[in-house]
Design a protein around this nucleic acid. Structure first.
Lengths: 151, 151
DNA sequence: GTAACTGCAAAAACTTTGCTGAGTT
DNA sequence: AACTCAGCAAAGTTTTTGCAGTTAC
């Protein structure tokens, strides 16, 4: 946050109410939102902010390294303001993403022989099913037992 | 490949020349192409195949679990036909993705306490700069020394 | 023969761009 | 005062959908 102001000044970028709001709301969001989701969250407090501004701001923040794109299969633009080293669990059903902090995962060793590739960061990604989707799936299969597979 | 035919039969899906070609070309591609790239590679051998068919086929293959979406930040749809357990190095500059096979990475342990999340697979993702982009960057910085930062 | 599939074109979704007036520095 | 930025609308991309004819089963 102060970091954001500092870096902006350093790079000749301006600190506007819109950018401050994007930074704040993204920092408070722990679900790695996409630009549209973030925009919806911003509207209540800044009803005139446009989606284009959200896109541009996220680009600027990413260029400054204050925000990171999260690699989620099938979703191009999801952002994370948490720059601590961390890992992700991703639900394959609902595409939700949660952070995992784990010292053992942080110690994963980079293999040898990557043919000139320079590794800057290592993250572990766990794919599976979140509790909520598992619950839904169970409910559905019970329904099938009771009523027959209803298609 | 035979696997594809078997699974298709099992699920009542049809084996068409288009699908066979998609499966074959994707299996031969080691760069995790997006649908459009794949489509361009298919055209020489199947000039009438449409991009929509490529999209639909990739969906079907992913649903059967014969193909996987690769999580690359900033790129929504990239596919991998390699189902062996493996990991990825991703160049942040050119977005190229290469597979890494490494037994030590395969043994990464899933942490405790994921609150009901069921992990199905674990992959390690290394971000950095590939050899080619590093070479380009070096050349550019030499040029800057000689000519001044040319903007 | 029947149902699923292809290709096409149109629609929807997502992202970027150009411009003008406004606001930060 | 200078120059960047916000908002808007338009353009560009990417992905999905509906449909008529075709083809695998």
């Amino acid at each position: 946050m102060q970091e954001f102001v500092r870096r902006s000044r350093a790079e000749g970028l301006r600190v506007t109410p819109q950018r401050l709001a994007v930074v704040r709301v993204l920092a408070e969001s722990h679900d790695h939102p996409d630009p549209d989701t973030l925009h919806r969250r911003l509207l209540p407090q800044l009803p005139s902010i446009s989606l284009a501004t959200v896109y541009k701001t996220l680009d600027a923040l990413a260029a400054m390294g204050l925000v990171r794109q999260v690699p989620v299969a099938g979703a191009a633009k999801r952002y994370d303001a948490n720059l601590d080293r961390h890992h992700h669990v991703i639900c394959e059903r609902c595409r939700s993403v949660a952070d995992v902090h784990d010292a053992r995962l942080d110690r994963v060793a980079v293999p040898e022989g990557l043919l000139g590739f320079t590794v800057r960061s290592v993250t572990v990604q766990m794919l599976g099913t979140c509790a909520r989707c598992a619950r839904k799936a169970r409910k559905r299969s019970r329904a099938v037992v009771r009523n027959g597979n209803g298609r």
